[in-house]
Design a protein around this nucleic acid. Sequence first.
DNA 1: CGCTGGATTGAGTCCGGTCAAGCCTTGTGG
DNA 2: CCACAAGGCTTGACCGGACTCAATCCAGCG
Lengths: 214, 214
Amino acid sequence: MTLAYTPTPNGASSKIAQVMERMGAAMRFAKDEEIFFQDDDAELIYLLQSGAARTTRLLADGRRQVGGFYYAGDLVGFETGEVHRFSAEALTDCTVLVLKRRALKEFAGDDELERAIWEATRAELERAQDHLLVLGRKTACERVASFLRGVAERAPAERHALPMGRQDMADYLGLTIETVSRMLTQLQSSAVVSFESARQFRITSPQALERLAA
Amino acid sequence: MTLAYTPTPNGASSKIAQVMERMGAAMRFAKDEEIFFQDDDAELIYLLQSGAARTTRLLADGRRQVGGFYYAGDLVGFETGEVHRFSAEALTDCTVLVLKRRALKEFAGDDELERAIWEATRAELERAQDHLLVLGRKTACERVASFLRGVAERAPAERHALPMGRQDMADYLGLTIETVSRMLTQLQSSAVVSFESARQFRITSPQALERLAA
DNA sequence: CGCTGGATTGAGTCCGGTCAAGCCTTGTGG
DNA sequence: CCACAAGGCTTGACCGGACTCAATCCAGCG
């Protein structure tokens, strides 16, 4: 049972997924449970099978930066050096395949696998670079619009669910929850998106959203 | 299995440097000249031999994000996919070794080279992730302090030169030139650093700088 | 039902941006 | 060697967008 292609940012190539499925151990994490910690030795790699997760980084005084959100099919924590630079936490209950890095390395001679690892690292780098532009040069409204567009891009559905709360969005976008909330209501009142509940929306005007995401 | 430590952010492992030196073509770029353009096909990889460069990304309305600064020994533009996601420009006159990606791929069977490429990509990712925290969660003063610390970390010298202008710093830090300038004078009047000219400084109080960089 | 925690809304503040002078360095030509 | 111009940097006054603090609101759930 190979995973189908996933359009998600860090979708595991089928090759990595194959190895994980053959050799990985299944684990479950409850909502808000830590999957791994910042500064821990990075001995394991994780493949999300269901649910969603976030990576976070803390400053000494408690300020938090969310590095990214991960969904079923995504690899988490593999693109690191000896030590994790982020923590990872379950956003919802989720099931994960876990494999020792060491085990993956045993396939090191396998060109296809090597390439898949590099490509996945590169994809993660592109995510980070896109994120840089958002944090460095976009306004609050543009950030929130970019975020919603990003969520929507993951799947061509009519309605989109937000597995994360406002605080997670805020820490991802470099804003406060209040500002995120205000921008969301503003986008709604200008008929760009429409929220059916706090965690579920549909896009009313894709062009307007695209334009605002800049 | 870990590569030797290189003090530069994206320092080419000796292995990649070896291949570049054997097979690369030497080129020169004048100050402010473009090395490659955003959205161009990424056919070539570049090894800076002397001088410094920046990578930049533009928004439609002209807002600019500087992705990073590169110095002698750094690889530029190799960690990309088919197309460059940033432009690269010479910060000063510089000399560069250029090699076709294709040529590097001919060594694809070479494990050491594969590993070096991955490590270099990973190093670039770590840079980007550190940068995310700065842009997402730090104040203007902390950003400037982080930046100066970063410059200083590259070499354990008494005095440090800044090859980039205020606008480049500002676009790197997600600030305006005025704010950068103000923070620099503020850091100077609180005796954290001391500028001998606009482009040259020394650190008066390393502890204070470290604390401010947060 | 009421409780609880997340989300929204409002009022006021402040950090960093904007606009506008001025200053200082560098380089060029007389 | 000096005068001047040009560009980069600094400084000041003011403004505004995002933050802070605080009060609701609301949905989910016991």
